Simulated assay, not measured.
Amino acid sequence: MLNKLHKVHNSVKVWGLVVCCACASMAATASELPQVVDSAFRSAENKQRDQYRHPVETLSFFGIKPEMSVLEVWPARGWYTEILAPYLKDKGKLTIANFRQNDGSLEDERKIFWARLAAKLKQDIKKHPDHFGAVQVEEFDPPGLMQLQQVNQFDLVLSFRNSHIWNEEGYLLDVYRALFDMLKPGGTLGLVEHRSSRLSEISSRAGEGYLDEYYVIAVAQQAGFILADRSEINANPKDSKDYPKGVYALPPTLAMGALDKARYLAIGESDRMTLKFTKPLVP
């Protein structure tokens, strides 16, 4: 009898050890994201924007995990890339679908500028492999270049403040459909976008660069997504959304230059919707 009790006691101790190790592992995983955000690699300027972009809360809301395969669309200068890459480099995989590179054929000044941003980020990733790890770099240039030959490949697709550009050009639905195809069934699409003022159930006031939240949801649903959740993580009630140059008057762009600069700095970055969609397991 004593031997049996001794065996049970030892089993409980072993079981408790396993449970404690599992808890410690979960705690370590949960702490990885804040550690990456606080990394000395990130510049003081980029960290200053955390108060408006809330990277830990936003990525946690989207359900990111270190073992995921993640696609970031149009990362531009790579503000989020320098957080995502080190977080995913050991267990997961990061792919960025950035602007088309300039092979000499680009004529649009905006696309030429975007191409320079993409080239700079690609160089930064190559220059700092210890931080970024092995990031796969692709080109994404709607409406002609939207297929990455990666159907049902990603656990999580992320887009930060890009949808208004796709909408201005008339291919928002096409882009969302492309992203839908790239996600695994059951995968998540995380969107952050400048949010226009809602006037009623059927109308909104949208300055340059802003989109109506219900419109974005409707387009994503038309592409096949299911709205899983919405968050006010990136809301900014100070944003009146009625500036001469729209959202670009606010930081970080500050398109008005010295004119009322202190006012725009006091407002901070734009009021933003934060939307989480899922791709159905069954078509």
Rank of each mutant, 00 (worst) to 15 (best):
W74C: 00
E109K: 15
Q150I: 06
E72C: 01
I125M: 04
Q136C: 07
Y80T: 02
V135H: 01
F132R: 03
K93Y: 09
E139I: 11
L84E: 04
R77W: 08
L88G: 01
E82D: 13
L84P: 00
V73T: 11
R116A: 10
L117Y: 10
M68D: 08
H131Q: 10
Q101K: 12
H128P: 08
K89R: 11
A115V: 03
E139Y: 06
P75Y: 08
P129L: 05
P143S: 05
P75M: 12
G104A: 13
T81H: 02
E109R: 13
Y87F: 12
T81K: 02
P129T: 09
H131Y: 08
N152M: 08
E72D: 07
A134W: 09
K120A: 09
H128D: 13
S69V: 09
S105A: 15
D90F: 09
E82T: 13
K122L: 09
A115W: 00
G92H: 15
K111H: 06
R110W: 05
Q147M: 12
E107H: 09
L145G: 03
D130C: 05
K122I: 14
P86H: 06
T81A: 02
E82K: 07
S69P: 00
E139D: 07
Q149P: 04
G78C: 04
R116K: 13
D124K: 12
L117C: 15
E138Q: 13
L106M: 14
W79N: 01
Q136A: 10
P142R: 02
L117A: 15
A76H: 11
N152W: 09
I83D: 03
V151I: 13
I83H: 07
G92S: 14
V137E: 02
F99T: 00
K93W: 10
T81W: 02
F113Q: 12
Q147R: 13
W74L: 03
A97D: 04
L148F: 10
K120G: 04
L84D: 01
